[in-house]
């Protein structure tokens, strides 16, 4: 089986990003990827220090900035996109993009 190079570079990107997040000194113990966050919960959005992907930049510009309150409303059927409420609006984004954001639990 041949693995497409895109998938490999994606994985490497995610790995690098997760290392970067681990190096962050103030990392909250209850911090999770947005893509793994439970439905119906609210949390504080944490972005990676240096987002490079244009999708992340677009989401940042649409109000998904570090420190804002985010609520994961639901996931789409058949492993579909995520429906979130952030910055006074409702957005939907695919799992792949959601994996590039972190959410800090509110106790």
């Amino acid at each position: 089986m041949q693995i497409p190079p895109q998938a490999i570079s994606n994985q490497i990107n995610i790995l690098i990003m997760s290392i970067k997040t681990k190096m962050r000194p103030f990392r909250h113990p209850k911090e999770q990827r947005l893509s793994d966050f439970p439905c119906g919960k609210e949390g504080i959005l944490r972005t990676l220090p240096a987002p490079t992907s244009p999708e992340v930049l677009r989401l940042l510009e649409m109000g998904m900035v570090d420190g804002s309150l985010i609520k994961l409303l639901r996931r789409g059927p058949f492993g579909g996109p995520l429906h979130v409420a952030v910055c006074g609006t409702q957005l939907c984004l695919r799992q792949k993009e959601a994996a590039l954001f972190f959410v800090q639990w509110i106790d």
């Binding site: 895109q6 994606n10 999708e55 677009r58 989401l59 649409m62 996109p81 429906h83 609006t89 409702q90 957005l91 939907c92 984004l93 695919r94 792949k96 993009e97």
Partner: peptide
């Protein structure tokens, strides 16, 4: 090309 994203406002 890579699978594109979906960023949509509801």
């Amino acid at each position: 090309g890579p699978t594109p994203s979906l960023i949509l406002e509801l």
